[in-house]
Write a protein that binds this DNA or RNA. Structure first.
Length: 214
DNA sequence: CACCAGGAATGTA
DNA sequence: TACATTCATGGT
């Protein structure tokens, strides 16, 4: 069922080519800045950082906190997020660099990321998938909502890791590629933003008719 | 498990 | 203009 949903979305919308960022480090920055915020506001924050040539973990750490806060302000929660960005940068430097991190085992890497204050499951998995090219599936509120409507899950607020493993199991059985993991998450976001609205609830959501609420 | 952490865009009247 | 809701969440 899950694989069919992916195929259906792919035919409907085509490839999305996520994540919109120039470097793996920019993906990491974006993953933190986008927490509880829309992407438009994140882009402004990222542009501000680029304008001031703050594009590496070293530069994030050497930028004074008040200046960093000012630059990322458009993305909201700037006091927390400025600290989160520094936590993440310090973590990356401890492990030499991003390329070096890619060599590590996926599950141990995930556990290490989750220890960084400011990185929860969704953020960790976004970084693993889109910055470190690990075959991990990212679960978000859209995924939970869509799967619930398709009756793949019983509860709207299903357990994160249970859901993730459900998708990963199905993907492994179909010999999915890294690109498939990236595309499926991107497609769910696109579909839900456009069609699978929060209100009203979708009564006749099926594989053939994926939450086509106007 | 409830609550809190800002700011900006969008919708509504 | 005033007010409410929503947004690629995580920590306490």
């Amino acid at each position: 069922m899950i694989w069919e949903v992916y195929q259906k979305l792919l035919t409907t919308y085509g490839k999305q080519y996520w994540w919109p960022a120039e470097t793996p480090f920019e993906v990491c920055i974006g993953a933190i800045l986008t927490q509880n915020t829309n992407w438009q506001n994140v882009e402004k924050a990222i542009q501000n950082l680029k304008k001031h040539d703050i594009t590496t973990p070293e530069k994030i750490l050497t930028t004074p906190t008040h200046k960093l806060q000012l630059l990322i302000k458009p993305a909201g929660f700037y006091k927390q997020k400025s600290q989160y960005l520094k936590n993440l940068s310090a973590f990356l430097l401890q492990n030499k660099n991003i390329e070096n991190l890619k060599k590590e085992n996926t599950e141990t890497l995930r556990k290490k990321l989750l220890k960084v204050k400011g990185i929860g499951k969704e953020t960790a998995d976004s970084i693993l998938l889109y910055a470190l090219d690990k075959e991990i599936f990212v679960i978000d509120a859209y995924t939970k909502r869509l799967f619930h409507r398709l009756k793949i899950t019983k509860k709207e607020n299903e357990n994160y890791d249970k859901l993730r493993q459900l998708v990963e199991k199905s993907f492994k059985e179909h010999n999915a590629t890294l690109e498939d993991y990236k595309e499926f998450h991107a497609l769910i976001v696109k579909h839900c933003k456009e069609k699978c609205r929060k209100k009203p609830t979708c009564e006749n959501c099926s594989l053939e008719n994926l939450c086509m609420i106007k």
